[in-house]
Design a binder for these strands. Sequence first.
DNA 1: CGGCACGTTGAAGGGCTTCAAGCTCTGTGG
DNA 2: CCACAGAGCTTGAAGCCCTTCAACGTGCCG
Lengths: 239, 239
Amino acid sequence: MSESQQDVRDSIRSAKLFVDLPPPLVDQLAISSRIRALSSGEVLFHQGDPASTYYLLQSGAIRLVQHTADGKDVTIATFGADDLIGLLVALNGDPYPATAEVLSDSVVIAFGSSAIWDAMNQHAPLAVRVLRLMGSRLHEAHDRIRELSVERVQQRIARSLVRLASKVGVKQPDGSIYLDLRLSRQDLAQMNGTTLETVSRTLTGWQKAGIVDSGREHITILAPHRLVLIAEDADEHNL
Amino acid sequence: MSESQQDVRDSIRSAKLFVDLPPPLVDQLAISSRIRALSSGEVLFHQGDPASTYYLLQSGAIRLVQHTADGKDVTIATFGADDLIGLLVALNGDPYPATAEVLSDSVVIAFGSSAIWDAMNQHAPLAVRVLRLMGSRLHEAHDRIRELSVERVQQRIARSLVRLASKVGVKQPDGSIYLDLRLSRQDLAQMNGTTLETVSRTLTGWQKAGIVDSGREHITILAPHRLVLIAEDADEHNL
DNA sequence: CGGCACGTTGAAGGGCTTCAAGCTCTGTGG
DNA sequence: CCACAGAGCTTGAAGCCCTTCAACGTGCCG
C-alpha cells in the first residue's frame, strides 16, 4: 500500500464520524478517497457541477453559497470540522445546488460517490451517525428560517457572530473572542440576508458601544455576553 | 393476529417508503405501530413534548410550526403524503422542536421510537430512502432560506401558493387550481415571514388582476402561469 | 341572530435598501 | 521602497417596502 493511502487511512480512522469503523471497512473507504488541502478563498465545487464526490471536513471552515439569477449571493450554511459536505446530492445524483467556498485553510477527505454507502450498509452505527448529522443540519436550517422570518437584521447579525464564535472563535486571555477567518462586511451581509452597508452601520454602532472590535475582514468580540443578549432578546436597541 | 394489526400491516405495505420491505420486517414494524386519523385543526404533537414517536403521513397535510418567545408563530415546513414527521428528533431523543398541526383531514401511521431503526439495520434500501427523504427536506429548507434572504414578500407568497398547489391542489375543469385546505391570511403570513395585512393586500391585488380567487380560508388559483411568473421572476409589480 | 373569528382598508412611520461619494487599508510592481 | 490601484469600508441622503395600529366590514356557526 502506498504511503499516501496510509495517510488517508489514518485520517479516516481519526475522524469522529468513523470512530468505530472496523479496519477492513476503513481500508475499503480509503481506496476511493484522497486528502485535499485547501487555502482560504479556494472553491471546493461550483453550483451546477455534477456531484460525483462528497467531502468530510477535517479542519478549517467552509461555507455553502447559492448564486441567484439576479447576481446576489446567499450563504446557506457554514461548516466546521467533522461536517459532511455534498453527501445528499451525491446520493441523489443531482448537480451541486450551491458553491462550496473555503473560509479558512482547510483539510478535507474526498470520497467517491458510493463508497460511504457501502460502508453504511455493512456497518449500521455509521448510518445512524450520518442520519444524526443530517438531523442537526436540518435543525439548524429550520432555526435560520425562523430567524429570517421574525427577527430584525441586528439580531440576525449578532446571532451569526455568536455562531461563528462557537465554530472558529479563539478565546483571548482578556476574555474577548477572535474570529479566526477572513470575514468581510459583504460576507456577513449575505449570511443574514441584508446589505453590506447595514452590516457596516451595525458594527460601527457595536464598536462605539464596546461590544466588538472590527477591522478590515476581521472581527473580535469584546463582550460576548452583550452580543448574546442582542441575539436572544432583541432589546439592546439603545446603542 | 388482531384485525387492527392486519390493517396496520396493509397500510405499511402500501406506503411508498416501505415498498420493498420484506414481509417479516413489515410484521415487526406493525407490532409497535398504529394508525391514527386526524381532522383539520388537530395537533399531532406540541413543541416541547418528549419525542417518543414519529409518524408517516399517509394522506392529508400537516404543517410544522415554531412558537417564538414573543408569541409569534412561524411555519417551518409543510408535509404531504409519504412524508416522515419527527423521525430525526426521535432518533436523537430531543423533545419536539415544533408543533405539528393538521391542515386537512389526515391519516398517519405512528411508530415507536426504535422500530424503524431496527428495520433500517436489517434492510439497507430503507435507509437510503430515509436519507434521500432527509436530503430533499434539507434542500427545501435551503431554498426557503434563500427566498427569505433575497426575495420580496409578494414573491414569497406567490411561491408558497405554487408550492401548496403542487401538494394539495385540485385541478378544476377550467384549468384553475383549488387548494384543498383551510388557509387563512394569518396562515399564509406565518409561512412567509410577513403579516396578515400584507397578505390581504397582496391577495386583493391579485384578485383584481384575475390571478386568484380567494375567500374566507380558501384560495383558488385562476392563472397558475402568472403566479409562477411572479414567484420566479419578481417583475409583475404593475398590478 | 348575535358573537366572534376572519378579512379589508387606511394612515403613519420606521427599518432597511439603494444610490452615491469619498475614505482607508493592503499588496504589488516598478 | 514607495506609489498607485483596487478591494474593502464608511457615511449620508432619499425613499420604498412593509409593519404597526386602528377601525370597520363580513361571513359563519352555534
